[in-house]
Design a protein around this nucleic acid. Sequence first.
RNA 1: GCAGGGGUACCCGAGCGGUCAAAGGGGCAGGGCUUAGGACCCUGUGGCGUAGGUCUUCGAGCGUUCAAAUCGCUCCCCCUGCACCA
Length: 939
Amino acid sequence: MATYEYESVETKWQQRWLQNHINKAEHTTGKKFFIHFAYPGVSGYLHVGHMRGFTYTDIIARYKRMTGYDVMFPAGFHASGIPSVGFAKKVERKDPDTLQLLKQHKLSDTFINTLTDPHNVVDYFSKVYVDEYWKRFGFLIDYERQMTTISPGYQRFIQWQFQKLHTLNLLIQKPHFAPYCPNCGPVAVDKSETDVSSGGSAEILEFTVLKFTLKDGTILPAATLRPETIFGVTNMWINPQVNYQKIKVGEELWICSEECAKKLLYQLENVDILDDHISGKDFEGKTCTVPLINREVPILAGEFADPSIATGIVMSVPAHAPYDWIALVDSGAKITPIKIIDVMGFGDNPAKEACDQLNIKNQKETDKLDEATDLVYKKEFHTGVLNDYCGAYAGIKISDIKDTVKNDLIAGNLATTMREFSEEVICRCKEHVVIKRIPDQWFIKYSDDQLTANSQRYADSMHIYPSEYKEELPGVLDWFDDRAVIRKGSWLGTEFPYKKGWIIEPISDSTLYPAYYIIAPYINSNQLTVEEMTQEFFDYIFLDKGHPKNQIWKTIHDDFAYWYPVDINLGGKEHKTVHFPVYIMNHVAIMPPEKCPQGLFVHWWVTQQGKEKISKSKGGAEPILEAAHTYGVDAMRLYYTHVGSPFVDIEWDTETVLKYKNRVGILWRLFQEIKHIQPHENQNLDRWLQSSINNHIQIITTAFESYDLRMAANTIFFELPKDLQWYLRRGGGNTNLVADIGKKIIRLITPITPHLAEEVWEQYGETTFVSNASYPLYDSVISYKTEEVGEYLLAGVINDINEILKVTKITPTHLYIYIAPEWKQSVFQEAIRQAQKGSVNVAALIKQSMADPELKKLGKEIAQFVGKLPGEVRRLNETDQQRYLTHIDEKTYLSTAVDYLTTLFSCEIHICGADDTNLYDPVIKVRFALPLRPAIYIE
RNA sequence: GCAGGGGUACCCGAGCGGUCAAAGGGGCAGGGCUUAGGACCCUGUGGCGUAGGUCUUCGAGCGUUCAAAUCGCUCCCCCUGCACCA
């Protein structure tokens, strides 16, 4: 027998499918199913992790196709934003890793040079995704619907979307703060560090800047994350090593660090840096006044006041800030801390107590000090209450007061805010990245109460997998805040219709995009021009407003009416808090309710070993093409589907993938084997096989209907072959039946391993695509309970015999199987019936049995047996109950399996009824015989 | 900080009130096959048992229940996402 040449088989069928256009979405049955995956951003080569979700999508689409749906499975590319630009920049600056990667893909230098243009990057990778990933994996994507988010038609679509949002009053303007490089303009600060060379994981912190005043009215701006502690200020810290800068902010004169002055230029209005400095040392012996409470406090030297953080000037709250406490001790100043927060578990000075607890001795122990700060802060935030020192705020919990104090101070012009990165951020150009205020940024108003409520109500009606996410979603929708939607910089995307030169950011331009898949084929085939795509056009297509200008408009309109809404949008867990919420909210805002998405499917990731996200820098995973070559596409598809729940991260592990490769091989051989079985009559077995396969089909289709792909795969690839193997081992040999079952199994495996399926289907003489065949359904006619119970009984007997042999280590010569007497079976069944109605009535059962004079002789035995029944019966589940209720002649059934038992145990088998005359039973085993649990005696 | 997920036998991983000593893979041990070979098929793999049994186990500890890996509470430990990155 030849080995399974999966690569040639894959190519063969992929070509045939596409040549015959079976992937095309067509309107034929009247039942439609629209599924797509969250389209990938164009950021470079993908890895085996990405294929997980794509594969799920294809499997579901194929299953639906086989159950009579017209399936729409399109795909596109999210080309907007930064990734392709970042890639082009890397090529331009001749980043060695990038160049090496491209050369590994056998690209010429001339071609690589064209990739300095982000548009070429998009074109190149779009082609790679289609040819090397999607087609290579046998996906039946309708490739005529391909689109990218930077095409002119798509841009028209997005402008329409934003005009709709505008008329719905969901576009608003307000100030915004964003990372900005003085040289390069706006930059993205993110962990992948496309734009920045360090500080990618920095967060933006919001400091409150409190305006302390010197005697002459000059402002000493102290920056804090805890404005409510203003009531506990005992002194000020100024770094004697630092030369401070004087600046003018509006009419006010401020003193702050030089670094701070530069930052404030970007964040506040009317900032002038004066040509005037003052040394930190000059503050020695001076005092300043605390705003709001107008207390005069001394200024002390504090070397820990870092000029690069916020203003470089720090207020001191020694009762609540461990750093301040330790610095105060070091300074030797005679100052009593003021405790302003009552908190459980701490006494008069929480900061001191935390320091003592961690045994902190001086200002240098920053790790411990950070820990102490964290400890105090958390405790105070959650359980602290402001005390009588806090005037009007006394008695209020910290968690409730934070913003109130800050807002009141700002309202009274006693404070302002300043944003700062949690760590230093350096641009690729080596410049420090700052935070810049954009005074009139545009936002989509996702905080809108009406929109939020409508979206939550709508989400409640959706099919969402996993269900945990469905429960989480209302909270996410509520939490989702206004989103800044435009940028000025080197980004790809659509121009914002209300501000020239500004580009809509990538999250906001991919919220309604599945609708564009309906239009895409008409644009791609030039049946529709970009110029035609006016407001009027989109209003007509999507909102059914107005009239068609020509036949194509009408056709597209009807297509939309047929295919929309989306039934399943499938995406990775990273989309839970960003893409999926805006996807829902924009649909709810703009589309009519009946066109809003029907379902979401969220899958987790493939990680590297050690649960780390796959990344090239950490060794990465195998490239997709290489993996397809090594394991075979079907093996990988099965691997993704079966290796774990879709809702957990799986670790890429080559050994494991190999097992699935073997599993595909096993299946292939099984199909070869069953074509050449020895004919043999055994009606019991034939019925059992049909019945068992049929039951499994029910499990499979139920699993598929609820998108439980793993359960479906488990049953198809592990349970079904077991059925066949048992059948063959038991001596089954109905060639017609086996061929028939074989074809059923081929259809069952098709959604998951379509290439193997087509190949074997063809070997069975079929001339059509199994991909187009209908999926097997459960057939209530094919149900042979007797045979099911019979084989169950046999398997149980074999188990018991093995158990006994194991314990006793006997080599058997004779094996006696004693079937329970008739009366036990009927009493047992009666007990089950009673239990189903309520509870088992022992007395009644005994009485009933004793009514038979023959049985009355057995009095004691009956009483004993019946006495145990309530416990026995309670332990049975429904399947078991059904088994016991099924009438079966155990003796006859087992007698047909004597040959099998004989070969299994290589000894003489005797099947005996309890009521047989001249029963050979030397140690009186018969009395232990129970229904479906014969007694056994071995010699 | 906000939110979500998880800890299961040597390992990976299902189960999520009775069918559970706990699926399915691996790994390991024994046997078969004598070659479809980076295989395949049986059997075993918590302890104790010369009769199909029994005892102890599902992060720790309480509790609910006739019955808990599964439900509730407390604690310990791990992981993930968080908006201008998609």
